[in-house]
Design a protein around this nucleic acid. Structure first.
Length: 469
RNA sequence: UCCCCGGUAGCUCAGUCGGUAGAGCAGGUGGCUGUUAACCACCCUGUCGCUGGUUCGAGUCCGGCCCGGGGAGCCA
């Protein structure tokens, strides 16, 4: 067996291309990592995977081959280049296999390779996040993540939306969505002080800055120039949340549309969800089948059902009344003016409607300052899209486009208006009704893969106490 | 941050009433087979999370701490 790089005139093929070949091909080259070695006296089989598909390709080497003994000692995880002929497999289990003429060891893997050919717990795999993409489940997760990232852009671009990159560093302390990470170049042991308070004017940006918790406010500005825009980027929350649904760094999708009301917003959210579920069904078959068989039984049925489902619209006030009449014994109180808890949301979407629902028109006092005040003056044009098994998956609103009312709401909620003068300015000149929503990309991935922990749908999760890799 | 559960071999786990630790996989050796996370036989593998206590004796009981998981809150 040769070591090092193989120069060859042979045709290099991704494993996925080889597996879906129309016919036999002579002299091909495959490169990838060994998943299993099954060795016998007469013949040795290698399963080679290069991440291009869930399935590995079977490489066969006869005992008569001079390298047979060396090949049979190859460890799981080794990187190989295989040169040979793609031939029809004489045995059950695969259509094509590679009859190896030459196998080159590119990178060895010893017996201490942590990823064994057995089932590992997701908890263990998180501790080897640098290797877990080579496992079946994470291969499928990240291929799916890739496919859906592409689909997000495809969806918006096909509809004339402008992709806007909103800032990651921001001085808006009150974007309204939670704790921010501080961004500073000051020396923490010796910060400049004024009246024993840190003097942020001395900091890099001349004011107190942090990592963005939402691109919405800036997306609104662009919406009032380009009509339809979306963001798709990293978002940060410094909250000490320790749950399977929270990470400190995640990717959020935030469309914002001008000349639009809450109904238009709901329609967009519905189209978005349906489009991506159908895209997944049509483009991720092999990986989806794996999730359906191994991660969440009935996943494909669930997605097909969602793709065809009617999306109900339910005003908050009606939701409260349904919950109060339900006779269910909820752990948290149901009363007009209180926010809906997870148990309430799941009851509505699973038991009452058994399908996706928009809950709209929430009490003003439990929602953010920028949401548009309804004519009843006690609710705002907010919407949450709830789906079975997950609960809230999208949250959005029509934005308050009337300067005076926005100012009044900010004052009432204690939001200082001076730092947000630019945000308010677009209400002074050419203001128009507009709306948008936010969707956590990882939460959406959890929904379509059936994965139950958000840390298992993002390459390198950042959570309280953990920023490894 | 709060509540609950857990931490035993490289990995997945068992360990009874408190009596001195075990199975599968991985690894090694041999055998066997166009094999399918191959199979069969034998061999090897331990700071029982850390720390203090109770006890003749602690993986097992109690306290503290660390780490992980589930749920809640916050939210996406």
């Amino acid at each position: 067996m040769r070591k090092g790089h193989l120069d060859s005139n042979c045709r290099y093929l991704a494993v996925q291309k080889a597996l879906t070949a129309e016919g036999e091909i002579e002299n091909i080259v495959l490169k990838g990592w060994v998943r299993t070695v099954r060795s016998g006296k007469g013949v040795t089989f290698l399963a080679l995977n290069d991440g291009s598909s869930m399935a590995s390709i079977q490489v066969v080497i006869d005992a008569s081959h001079p390298d047979h003994e060396a090949v049979s000692a190859i460890g799981t995880g080794a990187a190989l280049e295989v040169e040979g002929d793609l031939v029809a497999s004489p045995a059950e289990g695969q259509r094509w296999e590679v009859k190896a003429a030459r196998i080159t060891m590119v990178g060895e893997a010893g017996h201490d390779y942590p990823l064994q050919k057995k089932r590992h717990s997701f908890e263990f795999l998180r501790t080897i996040a640098h290797l877990r993409p080579r496992s079946n489940t994470f291969g499928a997760v990240f291929r799916m993540r890739n496919a859906l990232s592409f689909a997000v852009h495809k969806f918006f671009q096909e509809r004339g939306f402008l992709y806007v990159q909103t800032p990651i560093i921001t001085a808006n302390d009150c974007e309204g969505a939670g704790e921010m990470f501080r961004v500073t170049t000051l020396d923490p042991r010796n910060p400049p002080l004024e009246n024993s308070q840190i003097d942020w004017r001395e900091d890099f940006f001349g004011e107190k800055t942090g990592l963005t918790v939402s691109g919405q406010l800036q997306a609104e500005l662009f919406a009032t120039a380009f009509s339809k825009v979306y963001t798709f980027g990293p978002t940060f929350r410094a909250e000490n949340s320790n749950t399977s649904r929270h990470v400190a760094e995640f990717w959020m999708i935030e469309p914002e549309i001008a000349f639009a009301n809450l109904q238009d917003d709901c329609k967009l959210a519905e189209d978005f969800l349906r489009y991506h579920v159908i895209y997944t069904l049509e483009n991720c078959g092999e990986d989806l089948q794996f999730f359906n068989d191994r991660i969440e039984k009935g996943l494909i049925d669930k997605l097909e059902k969602l793709a065809k489902a009617e999306f109900h619209v339910l005003p908050y006030t009606e939701a409260i009344s349904i919950l109060q009449k339900s006779g269910e014994n909820f752990a948290y109180p149901v009363e007009w003016g209180l926010d809906l808890q997870s148990e309430h949301e799941r009851y509505l979407t699973e038991k009452v409607f058994d399908g996706p629902i928009f809950v709209v028109d929430y009490p003003a006092q439990i929602k953010a300052f920028y949401m548009r005040l309804n004519d009843d003056e006690r609710t705002v044009a907010a919407m949450d899209l709830l789906v079975p098994r997950v609960g809230e998956i999208i949250g959005g609103s029509q934005r308050e486009e009337r300067y005076d009312i926005l100012k009044m709401r900010m004052d009432a909620m204690g939001v200082p208006s001076e730092p947000l003068a630019w945000y308010m300015d677009i209400r002074r000149w050419g203001s128009c009704p507009h709306a948008g929503f936010g969707l956590g990309f990882e939460r959406f991935l959890m929904y379509v893969t059936g994965m139950e922990n958000i840390r298992d749908v993002i390459p390198f999760p950042r959570t309280p106490g953990n920023a490894q890799f």
